[in-house]
Design a protein around this nucleic acid. Structure first.
Lengths: 235, 235
DNA sequence: GGGACTTTGTTCCTGCGTTCACAAGCGGTT
DNA sequence: AACCGCTTGTGAACGCAGGAACAAAGTCCC
């Protein structure tokens, strides 16, 4: 019975998440409907592309009017699997890991850290973001009992692969990796890589390519006007 | 005079940064040469794609042998503009901002935070990562004197756009944005978005799409073997 | 010195993502 | 009731990235 399941492209999924955030904000502001143009502007994408993204969900707008904010929000949330909370485990509570554990943006989107783990005895037992840091030995048990499907790695690069192995062995099926290494995971396990220094290096390259940035630092005015360069993308 | 400047695609630039990191590790290990296959494996990409990426730098390998590690590393570092340090300013020292300020991975790649800024008087004056947090009023002066070209935004979403405006007005030409909003910047200013909750939402979707994950949590064995699913990408 | 093997660099091709442009449909108005 | 303007949804073209296969070139071995 199950609908055709047309397989939504991954790039579209990432943008849907952005639309969802914008729509939530609009709904909180009491907004009733939005046009594709306005929504696209807020999300930083092309209006036509937005409509094509939304077309993967089937017709969900009204011609001549636009999209109903609350309805569209719920529709996207359903497709993204946001109606149920997702249990996550986090390994590595250094600077970055602690920041992630304390970041409110996850909980408000339905992601909950049900376990924080670290190999260092100095960190085990501490409270981070209101939750205790556990030793690695308890990882399998926590993953099994909480049915956590997502693992976040914020460890040093050297131990990221072993941690990945332990997570997948424990039953985690998706991994978000902040360690600067390419991970190898069993087939069927999704891995997404977030590499902060790579982002900076790309920016540095673009700077360099655009021009050696005149040693005298400003012929360019502060650009009081903002000549339309909306930027938005996934990460 | 300047060489043809063939314009390297952005996706390639991101991967070059990854190759650079792997090569640095190999060089530190005393390795002399690498083949494209081995390097691609370590970076988590296809060997043919790696060779294509490297071809943008002109011929830099020896047929039948491979690539000289140190030479290639320096070549990539030069193209990416890594031979000179890059001055960055960071705005917003909450959990994430503090973690970024204390992250060692930036300094080792030639990025230095020359100024940390926050609007909250409670944070101004504190030391984070060995540097003092300054009030926003000093931003223009610091950007001007240090010629910082990169700005990192780790503020709440509500103030990200005004902060972006102030950074660009002060002369910053590239922005790395961690706030979950699409920024609008003047033409010529590069903005890269890193959205952590979007990453998690994409993973959740992939989980959901792949299958409702059998209520009974495991027919899949711990997968002792690792059937080759190298994963690596930019972020 | 010659041959064979290894590895690079390139070329072709396939597929995907993005953009533009148009037809279809709905609400409001006269 | 019919018309007009606005907005969605879709079809087609463009450009780009990724992958596979092939030729060039250098090294090692005999």
């Amino acid at each position: 019975m199950m609908q055709p399941r047309p397989r939504i492209p991954e790039a579209t999924v990432a943008r849907l998440a952005v639309y969802l955030r914008v729509l939530s904000g609009l709904a909180d502001g009491g907004r009733g409907t939005v046009s594709s143009g306005e929504l696209a502007s807020a999300a930083g994408v092309n209006p036509a592309g937005l409509r094509k993204d939304l077309s993967h969900l089937g017709p969900c707008g009204v011609r001549g009017v636009g999209y109903e904010v609350a309805t569209l929000r719920d529709r996207i949330a359903g497709v993204l699997g946001m109606e149920t909370a997702h249990a996550c485990v986090l390994v590595g509570l250094g600077n970055l890991g602690s920041a992630l554990a304390g970041y409110g943006g996850f909980g408000s989107r339905g992601f909950e850290f049900v376990g924080l783990f670290d190999a260092s005895p100095a960190r085990v037992g501490q409270q981070v973001g209101g939750r205790p840091v556990r030793p690695m030995e308890e990882l399998d048990e926590v993953v099994a009992t909480t049915r956590a499907t997502i693992g976040v790695i914020a460890t040093p690069a050297e131990v990221a692969q072993p941690v990945c192995d332990r997570l997948t062995a424990a039953g985690v099926r998706s991994i978000l990796n902040f360690a600067p290494v390419a991970l190898t995971a069993p087939a069927g396990v999704h891995v997404r890589q977030v590499d902060l220094s790579v982002e900076l290096q790309v920016l540095a390259f673009l700077d360099k390519q655009r021009g050696p940035v005149s040693a005298l630092g400003d012929a360019l005015s502060p650009a009081a006007t903002r000549p339309a360069t909306p930027v938005g993308r996934m990460a």
